Structure formats: structure tokens, C-alpha cells
Simulated assay, not measured.
Amino acid sequence: MLHEFLSKNRDEIVRRCERKLHARHADKPSEELLDTIPGIVDEFTAAAQREAGLPATTTMPRHSEQALHFGRARYQRGYSVAEIALDIGMISNAIGELAEEQDFHIDGTSYKLLDECIDNSVAQAIDTYAELDHAALEHDVAEWVGSLGHELRNSIATAQMAFDVIKSGKVGVDSRTGAILARSLARLEALVAQTLAAAQLRAGKELAIKRMSLRALVEDVVESAHREREIAFELAVDPALVIDADASLLESALSNLVQNAVKFTRTEGTICIRARRDPEWVWIDIEDECGGLGERDPEQLFEAFHQGERGKSRGSGLGLAISRKAVEAHGGTLHIRDAAPKGCVFTIRLPAPT
């Protein structure tokens, strides 16, 4: 009987699952890999006992707590949905191999029961994974909307204040108040562009690729950037250098990087933008004078809503994350390199036009 085979060989089935999991995830510890696999095997045994008309030694509720926990733990540890399905499916492989070695015949009814158990466990684990993923996405979206609304409100309030002062006739448009109005409007424009870029990337909209001058694109980004604290720009981009890209999406990526550089560069510092080409790639460097990254993990800067640690004003927290996704949508990469004590360098790599 299947339930007797599973009960008698329970530990060996678990050991075989462990070996198979280690073959797939060599760098993971056994405790993490197995997780609730032994409990899932016990639930299979209980199902076989009930199929045979016997009292089950382990309850198997309609919703398997073991499978639910497995899906939750795998999600929290960064496994994919495909890995969850394959990892639970290894239980069936281990049972089948052991049955063959011991010359134990699993009849059609028992095979069907095992398939149903595997299917239910995989489905429940994946449902849990999907629920957690959806909840995390909703949280991110809610945080983004709240943060975006905060920045929009502040920029509008600042622009309104500056406009009211200019309207009163006390100062002219060329005054410092006029400069505040210009910066606020530029920030609003950047936030709208950032939002549109995020929407385009999220929707998977096809890129509108066209050939363009990289120098002209960089000049447009620099011209529209916040100018504050007497920060200067140096451009080393050949006017003859061209790229194939979605203009609005790449401009948004560059704008986010430049605004980030302005935000963290020291007063009276210089931001250098350089570009070069090799046979396969176009490279764009944005070097700031922020003083370096310190002990922070560079990759964290590309996570949505991760903020800098220099006491600067709170941002929407999506700029660098959007920049990386926009560059990757073009088949490129975006990385950061620490250049302490001077600053850091963001490097975009894009496929060179053929």
C-alpha cells in the first residue's frame, strides 16, 4: 500500500529531496532548502491513508499549512515561482525513484493521488507567493503615489509662493524669487516625466527607437536641470556620437541621474558628463562630487524608495530605479562606481548603433 511505503521510507524520501535540492541550489543550507518538505511528505502519507480508508496520522486540511509556509518562505528568500514548482515536484521524483529501486509497484490510483497532492501543494505555495508579491507591489505603488503627491504639493506650493511675490510687483522675473519659480516648475516637469517613464516601463510599451545625437540629448538634460549652489557642468561628448534610443525614456533616465548628481554634489562642485564608443557599446559616465559612497551598498541606491543618507531633502525615491529600468529596456546596463574621496560615477552602457 502507498501509505505504508511512504511511512516506512519517509526519512529516505526527505534525504533524496535534500540531495536533489542541493544539486539545484548548491549555495543554500539544507535547513533553508528543505523547509517544510518533510511536512509536505507527511501530508502525502496522510492522504494515502485516507485513500486506503484508514485514520490519517497527520491531518491534511483543505489548505495545506506546509505548502503555504513553503511558498511564503521561498518568496521571502527570493526564489522564483518556477523554482517553487520544481522544488516541490522533486518529492514526486524522489518517491518514484525509490519505489523503482525497491521494486515497489505504484498503481494507477496511487499515481493519480500523488499527482493530485503535488498539484495541490504547488498551487497553494504559488498562490501564497503571488499574494505576497501582489501585496508588496500594492505597498510600493501606494508609497510611490504618496511620495509623488508630497513632492508635487511642495513644488506647487513653492511655485505659487514665488508667483504671488512676482505678481505683487515687489520683485521682477529676473530676481532670486524668479529663479525659485523656475526651479519649481522644472521640478514639476521632471516629476511628470518620471511618472510617464514609470508608466511606460510598467506597461511594457514598445520603445519608439530613433537615431539621435547623444550630445544634443545631454545638452537638453543639462539645460533643464536644477541649477543650485553654483554647481557647474563639464561635457565631454563628441557631437558626432549618435545612439539609437527612445528619446523620452532615455532623457528621463539621464535627467534622473543628473538631478541626483546635483542633489548630492558639494557647493560649487562640478558634474562631469563623458561619453565614448567602442565597437559594441556606447558608454556614458556621470561623475559627481558627493564625497563617495562610504560603506553603503551601491545596489541599494537602485531600489525604489531608497533615499540618500546625507540629510538631503526627501525625494520620490524612484529616480534611480526608473533610470536603471529605462536603460535595461534599451538592452543596456546602469551601474555605480565609488570614486571617493571625490564622489561617485554612474555609468550607462548602451548598444552601439550598427
Rank of each mutant, 00 (worst) to 15 (best):
F5R: 10
S7N: 12
K8N: 13
K8C: 02
E12K: 10
V14H: 12
R15L: 04
R16I: 01
R19I: 03
K20A: 15
L21Q: 13
A23I: 00
A26Q: 00
S30A: 15
E32K: 09
L33V: 10
L33E: 09
I40Y: 08
D42S: 15
E43R: 00
F44C: 07
T45A: 13
A47T: 13
R50E: 15
E51W: 04
E51T: 13
L54T: 07
L54Q: 15
P55M: 13
M60L: 04
S64R: 06
G71N: 05
R72S: 07
R74N: 09
Y75P: 02
R77A: 03
R77P: 02
R77I: 04
G78D: 06
G78I: 06
Y79P: 05
D87L: 00
M90H: 14
I95Y: 07
I95T: 08
L98E: 05
E100H: 06
D103V: 01
D103Y: 00
G108H: 12
S110T: 11
S110F: 01
Y111K: 11
I118S: 11
I118P: 02
N120I: 08
Q124S: 06
D127A: 13
E131L: 12
D133S: 13
L137T: 13
H139C: 06
D140T: 04
E143G: 03
V145C: 08
G146F: 00
G146Q: 04
G146L: 00
H150R: 14
N154L: 04
I156M: 03
A157T: 08
T158R: 04
Q160D: 08
M161E: 11
M161Y: 10
A162G: 07
D164H: 10
K167H: 15
G169W: 07
D174I: 09
G178P: 07
I180P: 02
L181Q: 08
L181K: 02
A182W: 06
S184M: 05
A190Y: 11
A193T: 01
A193F: 05
Q194F: 01
A203F: 10
K205A: 15
A208H: 12
I209G: 03
I209D: 07
S213F: 10
A216K: 15
V222T: 10
A225W: 07
A225R: 01
F233S: 01
F233Q: 00
D238F: 00
P239A: 02
P239G: 06
D244Y: 01
A245R: 03
A245H: 04
E251W: 05
S252P: 00
L254P: 05
S255C: 00
S255I: 06
N260M: 02
R266A: 14
R266N: 10
E268V: 00
E268N: 13
E268L: 02
A275K: 03
P279I: 08
V282L: 06
I284H: 02
D285P: 09
D285C: 07
I286Y: 03
D288F: 02
C290G: 11
G294Y: 09
R296D: 13
D297E: 10
Q300D: 14
F302T: 03
F302V: 10
A304T: 00
A304C: 03
Q307V: 06
Q307E: 15
R314N: 09
I322V: 15
S323H: 03
K325S: 14
G331R: 13
L334T: 08
H335L: 07
I336N: 03
D338Q: 08
A339N: 10
C344D: 12
V345L: 12
V345C: 11
T347S: 15
I348D: 05
R349D: 01
A352M: 04
